[in-house]
């Protein structure tokens, strides 16, 4: 039981980070969204594994919620957007892909260094994996900073959010249900809002202004 628990937890958590790095590597929207979907499922798996191990019913519910929201709904929404905009390849990121990957590695190391300070408070198999979540946050944020396309921004945001969720699960086995519910709903809503904005903007103006929005400045 214990080794299975540890192995599955490590596998799922690793999958979360790995899929984050993969999104940085890939350029096509479709494959990125697939990665995101995989990540959502892995995240849900983490929650499930933890829930089974700690016999937390609330966490089980959360896991299910995560599976639905992050594994299914959000990727579906994103796919719809990408169908609307077939050209939205991240063709010219601000930092090119190889450099991004190197930087991601640096970020992962940083996350590990910082993470150990946190995990030392309550060392356990679960908490030891928390740096993976932190690394996911950083990689996601890095994606936000360096990618130009609007879809990439949404993906980056979701990556950050997934990373935080991973940290939450691993460190605390989930925050109180009401908070978890609220945060998941919020993420969903944010994605909806962003999607709405993208669609409205596209309808509104002919040119694809999403990449270079610099009309408002000082």
């Amino acid at each position: 039981m214990s080794t299975t628990y540890i192995a599955s937890l490590e596998l799922a958590s690793g999958a979360v980070l790995l899929s984050a790095v993969m999104t940085l590597w890939r350029r096509g929207v479709r494959s990125i969204v697939t990665m995101l979907s995989l990540q959502g499922i892995a995240l849900a798996a983490v929650a499930m594994v933890l829930a089974l191990h700690e016999h937390e019913r609330a966490l089980l519910v959360t896991g299910a919620l995560v599976f639905v929201v992050k594994g299914l709904v959000v990727p579906t929404l994103l796919r719809r957007v990408s169908r609307l905009d077939p050209r939205s390849r991240e063709s010219r990121p601000l930092v090119n892909v190889p450099a991004s990957l190197v930087f991601a590695a640096v970020l992962i190391v940083l996350a590990y260094v910082v993470g150990t300070r946190i995990t030392s408070l309550a060392p356990s198999h679960a908490t030891h994996l928390a740096p993976l979540g932190l690394a996911t946050v950083l990689v996601g944020y890095f994606m936000l900073v360096t990618r130009r396309r609007a879809v990439s921004k949404i993906v980056g945001l979701i990556l950050v959010d997934n990373g935080i969720a991973l940290v939450t699960f691993l460190l605390t086995s989930g925050v109180p249900l009401i908070v978890e519910l609220g945060s998941s709903l919020d993420v969903l809503l944010v994605v909806v809002v962003l999607q709405f904005l993208m669609v409205s903007m596209r309808h509104h103006s002919d040119t694809d202004q999403l990449t270079e929005m610099k009309a408002l400045h000082d």
Binding site: Y141, K153, V160, V179, V193, L194, L197, A215, L216
Partner: peptide, 26 residues
């Protein structure tokens, strides 16, 4: 256009920021 641009920036920046706050809360 400008209003959409503003709200786009607003939602992206605030979401990422508030996500960090959530991490802090956690």
């Amino acid at each position: 256009d400008a209003a959409f641009e503003a709200s786009w920036k607003y939602v992206i920046l605030c979401s990422i920021g508030i996500a960090l706050a959530f991490l802090g809360t956690v």
